[in-house]
């Protein structure tokens, strides 16, 4: 029984970490830009494909095989590339809806998500097929009856690290201060010699890069990646960010813990649990939002009359 509980606990933590990485991106983008970037999940899932392509290119040129060195290089490249893709998406499409009603931006980003998905499918050779994704770290530890893949520990560690890094950046660096300034009031920030467009680009880069890490972990944890995995990843990441409270980093983490928790709990305990996992996850979402309409840690919006 013990091993059963421990195994599930580990599953829970790893899933939470992966969702949190994506949810952080949503929160950041909404908190700063008031933009619901529905294509964030699809942007994040571009990363594993870039990794795969880069690894193949590296093998063809410099490295003999898919050595850890090649993988690390490929991941780094993917993170940067996806960050840039996020910036590109903003520049091409999203920024045109800055002053438009929120629904416009929402629908535009949904369509954008489809575009990104289809581009992945078309550009990557045989894109419709799922691609095996290598396990980033193969080694396993045996603790008693339990098989602990080092990779799981790595994921949790990296996620925690990213949260700390983001927190430090937002609170203690000049860039973070500028981002918060733009978030608070775009026009006054401009008066303070802060260029909003540069800040938006920077924010998109950061959010997409963090999301890319989440995407790579998601692919590695599943063992495969397919061009439409971004839909579910984005939906769950979005839900996690919202129930935690959009704009709040801690909220994104809390939301991810809750959703991953329900997911694992339902599958482990109920007999037919697996088919109802999404039902319970989203019932949870409704439940939380009824009790706390702006999310658990969300700032209650004060309207000036």
């Amino acid at each position: 029984m013990d091993a059963f509980v421990m195994q599930n606990l580990m599953n829970w933590l790893v899933l939470s970490s992966i969702y949190a990485l994506v949810a952080l991106g949503f929160s950041l983008l909404f908190g700063v830009l008031n933009v619901i970037h529905f294509s964030h999940g699809d942007v994040s899932i571009v990363a594993p494909f870039v990794v795969l392509a880069t690894v193949q290119a590296l093998i063809a040129t410099a490295f003999p095989a898919a050595t850890p060195g090649a993988l690390v290089l490929a991941c780094a490249a993917a993170i940067v590339v996806v960050g840039l893709i996020g910036v590109l998406a903003d520049w091409l499409v999203i920024r045109r809806f800055r002053n438009a009603p929120a629904m416009m931006a929402l629908v535009a980003t949904v369509a954008l998500g489809t575009v990104i998905r289809e581009l992945i499918r078309m550009i990557y050779p045989q894109g419709s097929n799922p691609k095996p994704f290598p396990n980033l770290i193969e080694t396993r530890l045996m603790i008693g009856d339990l098989t602990v893949p080092v990779f799981s520990l790595f994921v949790i560690a990296v996620s925690v690290l990213m949260m700390i890094v983001l927190y430090v950046v937002m609170r203690h660096t000049p860039l973070g201060m500028r981002i918060r300034a733009v978030a608070e009031d775009r026009n006054i920030a401009r008066l303070m010699a802060i260029s909003p467009s540069r800040i938006y680009a920077a924010t998109f880069f950061i959010a997409s890069a963090v999301g890319a890490i989440g995407g790579i972990f998601y692919a590695s944890y599943a063992g495969v990646v397919r061009f439409d995995f971004g839909i579910q990843l984005g939906l769950i990441g979005f839900s996690a960010a919202v129930i935690g409270g959009l704009g709040s980093m801690q909220g994104a983490i809390l939301g991810s813990l809750l959703i991953a928790g329900i997911d694992t709990l339902v599958q482990a305990t109920m007999a037919e649990g697996a088919s109802y996992r999404l039902v319970f996850a989203f019932l949870l979402v409704i439940f939380v939002l009824v009790l706390k309409p702006s999310g658990i840690l969300g700032r209650t919006v004060m309207e000036k009359v």
Binding site: F30, I36, A102, L106, L235, F238, S239, V242, I243, L246, E272, S275, Y276, L278, V279, F282, L283, V285, I286, L289, V290, P293, S294, G295, V301
Partner: peptide
């Protein structure tokens, strides 16, 4: 409509998305 009363905008959107998915899954199950 009930849970949607207190929520606004994005949060409201998410509540409706959640409902949509729950109904779809239940119909499936």
């Amino acid at each position: 409509g009930f849970p949607s009363m207190r929520t606004r905008e994005t949060y409201l959107a998410l509540v409706t998305i959640a409902f949509g998915i729950v109904v779809h899954q239940l119909l499936n199950n």
